[in-house]
Design a protein around this nucleic acid. Sequence first.
DNA 1: AGCAAAAATTGACATAGATCAATGGTGGAT
DNA 2: ATCCACCATTGATCTATGTCAATTTTTGCT
Lengths: 240, 240
Amino acid sequence: MTHTAARSPIHCHQCSMQSVCVPAGLTPDKVEAIDLSSRKAQVFNSKATVFEAGQKLSSVYAIKSGSVKCFTLNESGQQQVTAFHLVGDIIGLEAIATGAASTYCETLETSMLCEIKLGSLFDQNIDGVHQNLIRLLSQRLSHNSRQYINIVSTSAEQKVASFLLLLSEHMQQHGRSPAEFKLPMKRTDIANYMGLAIETVSRIFTLFKKQGIITSDQSMLTILDRKKLHNRSVPFTTTE
Amino acid sequence: MTHTAARSPIHCHQCSMQSVCVPAGLTPDKVEAIDLSSRKAQVFNSKATVFEAGQKLSSVYAIKSGSVKCFTLNESGQQQVTAFHLVGDIIGLEAIATGAASTYCETLETSMLCEIKLGSLFDQNIDGVHQNLIRLLSQRLSHNSRQYINIVSTSAEQKVASFLLLLSEHMQQHGRSPAEFKLPMKRTDIANYMGLAIETVSRIFTLFKKQGIITSDQSMLTILDRKKLHNRSVPFTTTE
DNA sequence: AGCAAAAATTGACATAGATCAATGGTGGAT
DNA sequence: ATCCACCATTGATCTATGTCAATTTTTGCT
């Protein structure tokens, strides 16, 4: 039996990202106890499709590394980005209700995702998986609501500032540096996600650089002046 | 013992809105079996506060009649509307994770809400309550994502058209007329929710009236030409 | 490393929608 | 029924951001 990076089942207790699953109640040994095939780590190349809108889906995916974007397509094939998900996020939650994905989901870079099949987890409430899943979903609702506030009724500058701060917080919450991280998504995607023109996003990045708030080397972003960035963000979403 | 309209416990099997709770897995007799005090119907006057941001909350509320708006406040006391909820919706779902409400929630008109205490329902998975709650939450995520698309990256006209269509669909799904219903929220709230100026919203209503797409008598809205309205809405969110 | 394609930046201009201001309606309280 | 405060409408400007176009930078491939 040969193991490729993309295929070999990685045991949960060996997984460096246990913290991804544990909040979901997907405690490694319990998952293992139910069904050895219920979770599978997989490497996806950049721009790989994780799932498509309308596709039957009875799994969720934990992002162990990398990032994805979710989007819908209209008749003329234009994308509308609905979400970005980074390390530590669990994707596919919107599909639980219907059993079918409501968006396309594509990796933004080489990423490792762990597929978690819901079947047996859904039927029996092993070790509080249900409660944890409920909490996870509820958390996501809060998070989305906050994102919503970032988007609506604010200037382009506030949108971009809030977006960067939210990414930064996410990084911190997942043990990464909040001041320096990779922006895996293109300007186009950011612009699309926030309902702005790409040129506007670009100009705001330039502005923030001129003001000494951020710098960027390729896709690495450095937040130089968190306070200033915060001053330029949306007032409702303040955590700090 | 005296019973006031606002206080008298209404038994679930007498409730005309069973359909509100049943999708949440909150099957009347099962709820009853666990804890007689776990659900309580209450009448709220217009503009009454259901809960406040930050408030400890371990219940959800089913809207049996009426409507509410959820909003956050910034330092200077300005509102940002994050959601409207109508008959048949369940509110307070975002609070499950943290046990505290993340928004203010206020009735838009006289409304009857049924408080459902989660305590015992959360601990034991009676008759699939957990699974149903998970489905409900997942559904809400999908719905929000669709709302998001309505707001982002579209013209004011598309936003308003989509907003009206979504309300209309909701009414249909809850056995009301999709062509004629009450708009319980003020123009200001609609504008705030969608990130538009109130004047813009007003102008678009006027435009739609001139084009024979809608009429309105006070707060009653009539959709005269659904097809036209749909043509003016956001292409991504098409259900019809 | 070098080249081609994709992405980002920058500038000039156009416009949708915000803002300001005045007027007209509606509904709740007395 | 009347009044007053709130809400909606309409018109006249102004401005933030979109659009178009040209250039530079980055990225990925051979």
